[in-house]
Nucleic acid binder design. Structure first.
Lengths: 300, 300
DNA sequence: TAAGGTTACGGCGATCGTAACGATC
DNA sequence: GATCGTTACGATCGCCGTAACCTTA
């Protein structure tokens, strides 16, 4: 048994058990991969993969159980490298942030700027995706930390830190009827609505708000992206329901925002990263920066 | 980085950082070990060991942190092998039990006999030692499970299953004054006492019983081993305080046993094994056998 | 016949063993 | 001088790459 065989199992996992693709990813020829897998299965004395003819089509039950240990080993191996690099120079490195559009645009700018001042040597990669994809990116080590509101609470392999709390707001063009008067669920339901896609940015709480009523929102457009929603609100398509902090008084002067905290339960944005994953010092500081920014938001 | 380098760090740990001894243990020459260590430290970019001249004298702070990950990897590697072997044939294998003399002689015989009937192909090794040493044997993989009363509750890396509860008993030769009349702490303290060594078989609870009194036992002999205690009790040296289940009505007809449950808090014997350590099916069944025997004991 | 996998074989490099040397008690 | 570790060098064995072959959609 050796580490490249362990690595191979991981790469196979991420490439649909396709030996040829795995070989490419590992920068060796396919025959080498084939042999290493044979050797490993031979050493263990039992096949790890189900085969259809020669083709690998999935894991055996033994293989599935062993993949848990493989994941542990790969994580620890990565940790060793990270810890050593961090020990030598904790001012340099790479930080992969996975987040949703709304967080990237309306929450992260301030903490990221502050972080950059302290750590000019850290290269920041930000990737936007759906909460489900974010979690997947954590698991496949394509992201170090995730910032989002939905889903992350449900994953047992993640450390989840509560970040800040926010409310939804309704946005509409100036002079829209909704810019005046009290807002109720009924009234809200009387307009065509533009809001987030399922599984994004507190959308679940919008559902919750209407759950025990016989009303339903007439959602004519759902987007992952606050700016898309605003764009179509500006075109007069209807009322947008967005995250409160995504209304920018300066940039959105042509829109009015109405607080919906009395109608829709508050949402909590969270920071998540893999359990057992060593985070370099600068990443730990970045998280602190996020929490500071969160506190500032919630004090306002 | 490769697995034999990781293995090397473990072996060094267990051999006082002595390269020559580590080389022996790994069945390669010392120069090879020296070079592998150099290569690994070079790859990480920072030394893992403190050196006095050329001699290794301990871990650096980086080294200490990395040893945690090394332990994880070694555990997972061992798990992979165990899981595979277990999957192929769960009726064969080796079971290392670490326990104290008292458990080995007075508790384990019945469950071990039953286990052997079901698993004649499993080779059983039993090693007797002090609770502290037992825990060490778990950590160094020299034992799979430990059965004892003291200490194991305090170690966070162990899974601890409560097994059975028992009380101390006083034993004395027939016709000894203690064979009649009520027993109090005062009366007990008036005899010379023979009991377990510190850190063995419920000794801590004997201490507890006298803690808030101004009395003290006159312990004239402390042994790890119940049979040693009995032997000297038979010679008339004094009163033995032993574990209740260590009094054998058939074998110990020349002694009287008096229950001390009203004087000394009850003790609980536990089963312990390493967290994250995969136990083969037969070991899991052995534990069940222990719990069955424990239940039988506590029902009597 | 294209895509995926296996088998055979030759070459290269990583790692080991031998051996001589250096340091420390 | 005994113990412990390093360095140099030759030898070996493991692993890769090339290439031909097998199998199935």
């Amino acid at each position: 048994m050796n580490l490249s065989q362990i690595e191979l199992l991981r790469v196979l996992q991420e490439n649909d058990f396709n030996l040829s693709r795995a070989a490419e990813k590992m920068h060796i020829v396919q025959s080498a991969v084939s042999r290493q897998l044979q050797l490993f299965e031979e050493e263990l004395g039992s096949p790890l993969y189900e085969r259809q003819g020669k083709k690998l089509i999935g894991l055996t039950s033994l293989g599935r159980r062993i993949m848990e240990e493989v994941a542990t080993i790969n994580m620890a191996k990565k940790n060793i490298q990270t810890i050593a690099a961090d020990y030598i120079d904790s001012s340099q490195g790479v930080l992969h942030i996975a987040t949703t559009h709304t967080q990237a645009k309306y929450f992260l700018p301030k903490p990221i700027l502050r972080f950059r001042e302290k750590y000019p040597g850290v290269r920041i990669y930000m990737v936007e995706a759906s909460p489900e994809q974010l979690i997947n990116k954590l698991h496949t080590h394509k992201a170090d930390i995730a910032v989002c509101t939905e889903k992350v609470g449900e994953d047992n392999d993640l450390v989840v830190k509560p970040c800040y709390e926010w409310h939804h707001a309704a946005v509409a063009p100036k002079n829209h009827p909704l810019s005046e008067g009290e807002i109720s669920l009924e009234r809200l339901a009387s307009f065509p609505i533009l809001t987030y896609s399922f599984g994004f940015t507190g959308r679940s709480n919008i559902e919750t708000a209407f759950k025990n009523t016989d009303m339903a929102l007439d959602i004519i457009l759902a987007a992952a992206d606050t700016d898309v929603i605003k764009t179509y609100v500006r075109l007069g398509m209807g009322v947008g329901i967005i995250a409160g902090m995504a209304y920018d008084p300066a940039m959105d002067q042509d829109l009015v925002a109405r607080d919906l905290s009395h109608l829709i339960p508050s949402s909590r944005t969270k920071i998540a990263y893999l359990k057992n994953n060593y985070l370099p010092l600068y990443t730990q500081h970045f998280i602190e920066e996020l929490l500071v920014a969160a506190k500032e938001l919630n004090l306002q």
